[in-house]
Design a protein around this nucleic acid. Structure first.
Lengths: 173, 173
DNA sequence: AGCAAGTGCTTCGAATTGGAAGCACGATAG
DNA sequence: CTATCGTGCTTCCAATTCGAAGCACTTGCT
């Protein structure tokens, strides 16, 4: 098999590295700020922010995990931590006895509100400072497309316990 | 204090979330592939790739850490791991007795070569599949600018043990 | 030379992560 | 109704991570 050229060209590599590096740098910086401002880890902030965005202020565990791209077990741990701090509430769902509904509390909203300004400031300084309006729009467009694609592309070897609401992916059993 | 509007507009938020989500999703997918193909973690791959890129095949510990955006102590751990597996070599520098020079071995290059095709495949499938040539160029341009800016912007409260080769940042002591 | 500050790396300890395995409820086919 | 499979979460455990503190070598000043 005369395999096809496996390498990427310079531009692709540049885009890839810049993506990884930029997100890493940004994440670390934000992490720092969140720690100082409200003693929150990045995931915890993401969770609170996700819940705060919801009209009901709550979400199922699984949906939260998918939303922030996190492992189920990891989420269990973080949810417990947040619950201990009184920032969220965990209650078994009424309709499905298995699932847990996580809800942000007033206190949680307060903490979120407390760290948000600083968070935004970091983003302004580090990310948006050198980007034009049009850059930002373009970036949003491109990355949104990429993200949506990745979201719906199954992880390259769908395990048994791995399937969403999709029919038709039938291979040899 | 009628603080200035601390919030971001929808586009900015969209760009930010898409950036974080896309990089997370991509990282997880790549991590999976690296694990399967060569039993490497993402950082380990980054380290080997960085060393492989160098003309000499080696780098100082600190430079490596900065390069992949990692803590010093974390790098020490990973370097030891890679050394145990025979993928890199660690030798005290001749000119500066304090610093350690990490060098990739033949074996290391072999492992790198072994995982690379799969790695590239994942990138093609997940990231580049839905992007046009021009998208990729634009993405590289924008993110490179952002990254470079973040690289040279000190972490918003320069600690004592925090300074590069820059003069002129003098504030109240 | 002699001392103090700076830099490079490692050790230590505590907090996170995530995969595998387990438990419990729900839905579907007999 | 009752097996059986599927889904939602948690527990367990081993591997990572990172900051604080410590050790060793260098550089800068006097």
């Amino acid at each position: 098999m005369t395999s096809s050229p496996p390498s990427l060209d310079a531009t692709q590599l540049g885009a890839y590295f810049a993506l990884i590096e930029a997100s890493s740098l940004l994440k670390h910086a934000v992490e720092q700020q969140l720690r100082d401002a409200g003693d929150l880890s990045y995931v915890q902030f993401q969770l609170l922010a996700t819940l705060g965005d919801s009209s009901t202020g709550s979400r199922r565990m699984t949906d939260l995990a998918d939303g922030v791209v996190y492992s189920r077990s990891g989420l269990t741990y973080q949810a417990q931590t947040l619950e201990k701090r009184g920032l969220v509430t965990r209650t078994p769902s009424t309709d499905d006895e298995r699932s847990i509904t996580v809800t942000i509390t007033e206190e949680g909203r307060a903490v979120l509100a407390g760290v948000f300004p600083g968070h935004v400031a970091v983003l302004e300084d580090l990310l948006f400072a050198v980007l034009s309006r049009s850059d930002i729009e373009t970036l949003a467009d491109i990355l949104t497309r990429a993200r949506d694609h990745m979201r719906q592309t199954p992880p390259r070897s769908a395990e048994p316990r791995r399937r969403k609401k999709m029919a038709g992916t039938d291979q040899a059993p």
